[in-house]
Write a protein that binds this DNA or RNA. Structure first.
Lengths: 196, 196
DNA sequence: TATAAAAACGATCATACGTTCGTTTCCTGA
DNA sequence: TCAGGAAACGAACGTATGATCGTTTTTATA
């Protein structure tokens, strides 16, 4: 046996990425074996290497694609929104929405940082920093206009991001709490926390 | 060669736990090998088994001891503190202090949950739930007395805990921000967020 | 002080891992 | 239509891993 009927490169790669995402999310990068991954996709282990360079590259690509997407989406979402309060509200709503939708990517993006090569990790951390700066900028502008009272921009931004990102570890879209209510609660927590 | 001079059970176990804590924190449980660990302690790999049952038990014991300690300490800290506002302040201060002091244990306690046996994980999750309940109780009492305005106790508690625990991933005691200032910032964020 | 338990060694086991490679079959574009 | 690249197979390699075991030396107890 050899090449199977109907096989195509991009499709298989997408399947590998999806299965990899799932396995890394549930078991962790180190705990996931390429044999498991191959089995989940329906391939022999060696065949994976027609689509990925190494196991490390699989992880990096997953995280990297996620970060690039995250940055593009937040900028699109904030475009044209005027005023620090409105921008902060938009940021919170976007952040929660995105983190609910892509909780696996987000979780891996922080939990598996340690599994990245130093060089790869640096790339990701730089992108993450850029995302954090989006929030810092909003807080800074609001503080300058005396709309916000923030004693330390960066610390506050990290605190808020930690709070907003925390939902990835427990929120269940099919659970008791609706997405709308979740956003309301967090928006209030954030706004009350920074408003002058 | 065989038993080395001056060796004693409890001492070696403590060294194993400390080295294990460090390795798991920096590299992750799966990525840490017992050979690395043994080398760090100054033992042959096989000798570890005079002190631990399995690698899994090493991880479990580390997390379990941490959780038991955390619960004992929070109860001691809250004992005798009266009034929801004061209790909330005390909780925030304690939580931050403890999480700064033992950031490695805390980090492992959540990041390596996935590496635990289902049964072991269940034990830890139960303990964690008990800790979360401490905060929930404070919020509930405060809400009943109309001191706090909280639309969903559990969601709010999780949001606050995520925020407070986030410092483990970035706070550096030797950095720009003092412990005092950190507590002040977070206390304000929490109080403003829940006060009626 | 004799003796059993404790704590270390060092060799070894079976297994699982990431990756490579030669080969075969299928798909696609000239 | 047919040639060449793409995508799969399956076997294999070298290494690393968690764990076991018989043995030896030290410590501690009675």
């Amino acid at each position: 046996m050899s090449r199977t009927r109907g096989s195509s490169g991009p499709k298989t790669l997408a399947a590998i990425n999806e299965a990899g995402l799932d396995l890394i999310y549930t078991a962790g990068y180190e705990a996931m074996s390429l044999r498991e991954l191959a089995a989940k996709v329906g391939l022999q282990p060696g065949s994976l290497y027609n689509h990925i360079e190494t196991k490390q590259d699989l992880l990096f690509d997953l995280i990297h694609n996620h970060m690039v997407m995250l940055l593009a989406r937040v900028d699109a979402e904030l475009e044209g929104v005027e005023g620090p309060v409105e921008r902060l509200k938009a940021f919170v709503a976007f952040h929660l929405d995105y983190h609910i939708e892509r909780k696996r990517e987000v979780f891996i993006g922080s939990a598996e940082l340690r599994s990245l090569t130093p060089k790869n990790r640096k790339t990701i951390v730089t992108l993450r920093r850029a995302y954090e700066d989006r929030l810092c900028d909003i807080l800074k502008t609001g503080a300058a206009k005396r709309l916000f009272a923030v004693s330390d921009i960066r610390v506050t931004a990290y605190a808020l991001l930690a709070m907003l990102t925390g939902i990835c570890t427990w929120y269940d879209p099919k659970g008791r709490v609706s997405r709308r209510k979740l956003i309301d609660i967090h928006t209030r927590l954030v706004l009350d926390g920074v408003t002058a």
